[in-house]
Design a protein around this nucleic acid. Structure first.
Lengths: 212, 212
DNA sequence: AAGAGTATTAACCAGGCAGTTAATTGTAGC
DNA sequence: GCTACAATTAACTGCCTGGTTAATACTCTT
């Protein structure tokens, strides 16, 4: 009895490589986001995943290998979600902010990457380029439609949107120092959203029509 | 001959603790900026400072001790410079950008701090609070003078200025990915400055008077 | 010029950690 | 059942690195 219920049965069975991989990836994301590639401890990842440490190397070869895979996964996820951006510019910006810069792990992974040594070529460079390319084209359409002032550098605009929305998650201590509130504090969130709304209105104003 | 030319002669002499300290601090800043507290190697710092590793512990007790002192120094330097901000708002913003966010080490130290575990109380918290407080008051004066639109949250404004200006240094890989240029590229610098100028003009416009 | 204390050094050590070895156990195909 | 292989495990290893020990060299005071 109970023969060959393997390979797709990811619940009750003892041995299941796919499940093990998944667990390690999840634990890896948490650990890498928290401590970065160098700071992450394979032992800790394994414990979090409730898996023997050896499995990490069995599945991903090395700590770096796991790191790369975790990153690639995250990027793939984001690409999927980005693709379904709403058409209205304001809604699109809010959407990007939420799914992009609202994801603390995502922000922190980029932060670790920025600080780490730029050894070798960037992980998943082309995928990311495609990701940003699609956003750029989306903005261009908005500009042609007149939703964004003519003559504005769209790359700079995009960069600024990221900068403004990601900053609190990227520099929580600065946020706390300046405003007295953590980036998760609802009061901060409200003030931040309100300010960005105002700023967006100012930016959008193409000619002599300004809000208020 | 040649007696007691000690203590202030920081150039030719073999033994000079003050000079040694200075060297270690300088090397420490470089190393901590590059690799963070955990990633920094005391051996590397010592080599960069052309000093025996033991001197690091002799002078600062521990790696952490050195780190704290390096940070305190940087903050003190910034406080000194911030105090002499020009009166014109536009000039002030440009000034802050240059001396604040133009200093890659300064930005990176904050980045490492943001990512690291918030163990214990923040280093030099009060000094930094004072620093930002002075900026806040400076902005309030500008607002009262009508240079900043009424009703704008000054903390949020300040945070945004930091975010916008520090972003390229904080996330060089993102900058390169979006614009195709590194944050040091003169062409990027020009485009960035131009964009920020435009944005600043949009923000400053208090009523129905807008640029262009 | 001798004593005293300070700056400097080489050599060392203990702990932590990525990655490995080699043995074991579960599973699929026959 | 048996074989062959895939998944899992405990124990181990070599390296790196913060911090220490203990000895040495310099310089100031008297």
């Amino acid at each position: 009895m109970a023969v060959s219920r393997r390979i797709k049965d990811t619940r009750g069975s003892i041995r299941d490589l796919a499940r093990t991989r998944e667990r390690i990836l999840k634990a890896g994301l948490a650990e890498f986001s928290a401590r970065g590639l160098a700071g992450a401890r394979t032992e800790t990842i394994a414990r979090r995943a409730r898996v023997n440490k050896r499995m990490l190397f069995y599945c991903f070869g090395s700590k770096q290998g796991l790191y790369a895979e975790v990153l690639r996964r995250k990027i793939a996820d984001k690409a999927e979600v980005i693709a379904s951006t709403p058409e209205d510019l304001g809604a699109a910006l809010k959407y990007w902010t939420q799914i992009g810069c609202g994801d603390v792990d995502w922000v922190r992974m980029h932060e670790w990457e920025a600080l780490g040594p730029a050894a070798g070529p960037m992980v998943a460079r082309t995928e990311r380029r495609r990701l940003f390319q699609s956003v750029h084209e989306r903005l261009r359409r908005s500009q042609i439609a007149g939703e964004v002032a003519r003559g504005v550098n769209l790359d700079q605009l995009f960069l600024s949107v990221i900068a403004l929305t990601a900053f609190p998650a990227a520099f929580p201590q600065m946020t706390r120092l300046v405003t007295g509130m953590g980036p998760d504090d609802p009061r901060f969130r409200r003030a931040h959203t309100k300010f960005l709304g105002w700023l967006g209105a100012q930016m959008a104003a193409p000619r002599r029509r300004s809000r208020r």
